[in-house]
């Protein structure tokens, strides 16, 4: 998966981040608009967003706090990708120690530690989180999709109640979600089909002999 180049990246953005134009402060608005598009269309282009932070890093006066916030929220939706921390490394110490970053880092920690039930408790427990994530359309759904992915990697079957707490869904909404994933539920247990991550099969690595290794031997057979 070459995730560094999303298929939705426009040509103009591509050429901008490939060349020296990425350092030109005049281009920050193009990248910021592109971020707004990503936020509205549930897309994410980490490389382009890092280019915004780079421009802010060099030209502190350009920094737009809302943009920084949205980039970080976007990065939350791509965990466990490393994007969130890669963004933090481009912010200065002061920004990392202040709002909104502190709140977002709190969410990051919960997701990174797979404490999903607690994530939702914290997220629902303070209005600030919905405010911070309001410009990123479908934030909750993206997080939920990633949680579902983590569950599907780990479990072959899981108690419905546990799954519900991870996904922050109940009753019909949960049943619908389970169905949409292609999972099935019976007697309070959700079964997840075997995939390459949750099969946990004991394997024996056998060696592969490359053709190049045999060239000398094949050479010999020619001589004969």
């Amino acid at each position: 998966m070459a995730r560094s180049t999303p298929s939705t990246r426009p040509e103009v953005i591509q050429s901008l981040i490939d060349g020296v134009d990425r350092y030109n402060p005049d281009n920050v608005s193009i990248l910021e608009e592109y971020l707004a598009t990503q936020c509205a269309n549930k897309e994410c282009d980490a490389m382009a967003n890092l280019a915004i932070l780079k421009l802010y890093q060099f030209n502190a006066h350009l920094t737009n706090d809302q943009v920084v916030n949205n980039i970080l929220v976007k990065a939350l939706t791509t965990l466990p990708e490393p994007d969130f921390n890669l963004c933090l490394y481009l912010l200065n110490e002061q920004m990392v120690a202040e709002e909104p970053v502190v709140h977002l880092v709190a969410l990051q920690d919960l997701i990174e530690q797979a404490r999903f039930a607690e994530f939702w408790r914290v997220y629902e427990g303070d209005d600030i989180y919905k405010e911070l994530t309001s410009e990123v359309v479908g934030f909750e759904d993206s997080i939920r999709a990633n949680i579902a992915n983590a569950v599907a990697m780990t479990f072959q079957s899981i108690e419905t109640e546990n799954l519900g707490s991870y996904l922050h869904l109940k009753g019909q909404a949960l049943s619908d979600f389970v169905k949409a994933q292609g999972w099935s539920e019976a007697n309070g247990v959700v079964s997840i089909p075997v995939n390459k991550d949750n099969e946990a099969k004991t394997t024996v690595l056998t060696e592969n002999i490359k053709f190049e290794q045999l060239t000398k031997i094949i050479g010999h057979s020619n001589d004969a």
Binding site: A114, A150, M153, T154, N162
Partner: peptide, 9 residues
């Protein structure tokens, strides 16, 4: 359980 999920990821 959360630890196992994290280990998996």
């Amino acid at each position: 359980r959360t630890l196992l999920m994290m280990a998996k990821i």
